[in-house]
Design a protein around this nucleic acid. Structure first.
Lengths: 192, 192, 192, 192
DNA sequence: GATGAATGAGACTTCATTCAT
DNA sequence: GATGAATGAAGTCTCATTCAT
């Protein structure tokens, strides 16, 4: 499909993405000029590879999205409707909390790269299927739409960020918040 | 305490805040120069009143925070431990979803105006009290710390934003998400 | 001539000049707004008394110029043509090096206050007389014009400033530089 | 050492420096925006080349400092201890009086460009050597430290500026003031 | 393809001065 | 007279993007 990159171009691509990954991990906003400088490349080179900061950010996020999608496959193979949903959502939130590139990409309504759109679709579809299965099995309250999954996961991740703490803390917090929410999702509305 | 503003200064102050409120409602980031232009005032005037965009944003948020604090008073007066907590959190989330000035101010760890710090402290304290009461009454799962309230409300608000929709939709969504979460908060962890 | 100031106006005048004196001593540039704030007065008040920073600076310098003028009187009374000139110039340079308000006022070609113009004229005239006397007495090389006195004194003061050091150092340096220059002024051009 | 500039960058660099030179000659303070406008270049371009007005000013001064340093070489080669010192100082003062970029750069205690620091060190060292030679030869009064040379030259230049006059006048004045001072420097303190 | 210089809109801020109260 | 709020020109500087080399 795509012409494979020339060897030097591929090296530059890698460098750029590596630098961007570092910046994202440090919480520094991605500025293409800045990335170029840190990568020891010309600005033009960076722009050739990534037309906008968003494109670069999505690229940084891609591998993580792919890992999530792969996990989604496994979850779909798990016959337990609740356990598979819970596992998938747990992974999703862990990823968002661990990798700063994920939150903005997930929350964005428009993507820059086709690959991003593709992966997000896969993940949405996986979530839908898992949710439908769980709902049919009566494991989940019926008023939860599949369109709610992504927002709720983003919300959890955001809550974790607001609370703050070390990276390790954050994973713990994420589990706590997610389990609380899941309790609510599972709940059959109680009768008075 | 504070010297009352001169009449013209007060008029300008009002204009500035009104313009800022509009901008916030439109989702436009607050830029003091821009505010000055739209208010038909000199830049210097705006800077005299608000040294930084944050100060202006907090000012815009103040009345809303005050309304929440006032509601908090009422909630504290309500003897029902669960209903009062639920009511307070509902108002909080409604406010965050309705008023774009609130989310950044609430999530910020450092404030610019003393008044903001004060109001945030009041709200935190109200939340704590309500939560403690509910916990003691056995209405809430014991592993929820009072420090979690603000993050969770921010998370809900964020989830609502990610889902999007009209302002009216958003309030509905907020209620739905909050009630789900509250279900989880209330739940006595179920036994298998 | 001038209507005497009302008592409160006089008090304000004094305050302003005192603040300005401090600022000058610290080497802070005179800004009327700044002066007003430090004096606890409105800007308008300061502007009423001193239309420009220059006017204020000249006012600050006035007492020092008056002291120099007074010394000039004494110098004129001294019958020794060389000693009187030397004493007058020494005082002048000491003053410039000691009081930061003096250099700019002395070097300026145009004055703001009539009183400044008056005092500068007196000092120039004193210098002229002393120099003429010394020249006639053969104590000074003939190619030194009286118009050179002010520039040379400013030059010495500037040299002292460039070398830097503590206020005490500066007076010593001033004496050293001045004595060197005077040696040159006195010199009958030597024959080979 | 330094990568040579690209052709267009070099052209812009030259333009900027030329404009700055004109401004300096007119006595206009250097403002980078202003320079950009006059040079027909974007502000960013000027900022890329010269991070601060001081850097630009020092660049403008550089060629003159280099010429002085070159003259210093020749002076060191001259075996006559007095004549070589006199020649060097004469050139220095002429330069300061002729080129308005020099005075501020010379008087500044901190430099922006390494090149400036380098050249100033060379000139100071040349001055020291010439002065030491002259002192050892008994041609100069012993209480003159080498640290005094720069301040005294700045002082002379300042005196010339205060007197004012056309550029041609100023050179004449500079010679006159310098020769007076040198007379004082040379003088063996006279006995009464 | 790679480079990095150039661009210039626009954000932020200061300050001398005016003028309404 | 005194006050200090208002003014806005002008300065500094950043940064996303383009384009000549």
């Amino acid at each position: 499909m795509t012409t494979p990159l020339r060897k030097d171009a591929a090296r530059n691509w890698d460098r750029i993405v590596a630098v961007a990954r570092d910046l994202v991990d440090q919480g520094t906003p991605l500025q293409l000029n800045d990335v170029a400088r840190r990568a020891g490349l010309g600005v033009g080179t960076v722009y050739r590879h990534f037309a906008t900061p968003e494109a670069l950010l999505e690229t940084v996020a891609t591998s993580c999205l792919e890992a999530l999608a792969a996990h989604g496959e496994q979850a779909l193979a798990d016959p337990d409707p609740w356990r598979s949903l819970e596992g998938f959502l747990t992974r999703t939130v862990e990823a968002q909390v661990t990798d700063a590139s994920l939150a903005p990409v997930t929350a964005a309504s428009a993507d820059t790269l086709p690959r991003t759109t593709e992966l997000k679709a896969v993940l949405r579809s996986t979530g839908n299927t898992l949710l439908d299965r769980a709902r049919e099995a009566g494991a989940v309250r019926p008023d939860l739409a599949s369109a709610d999954l992504v927002p709720l996961m983003c919300g959890i991740a955001h809550a974790v960020t607001v609370l703050g703490g070390t990276p390790a803390d954050r994973i713990g917090t994420a589990h706590r918040y997610l389990s609380t929410l899941l309790e609510g999702l599972r709940a059959v509305p109680r009768t008075a």
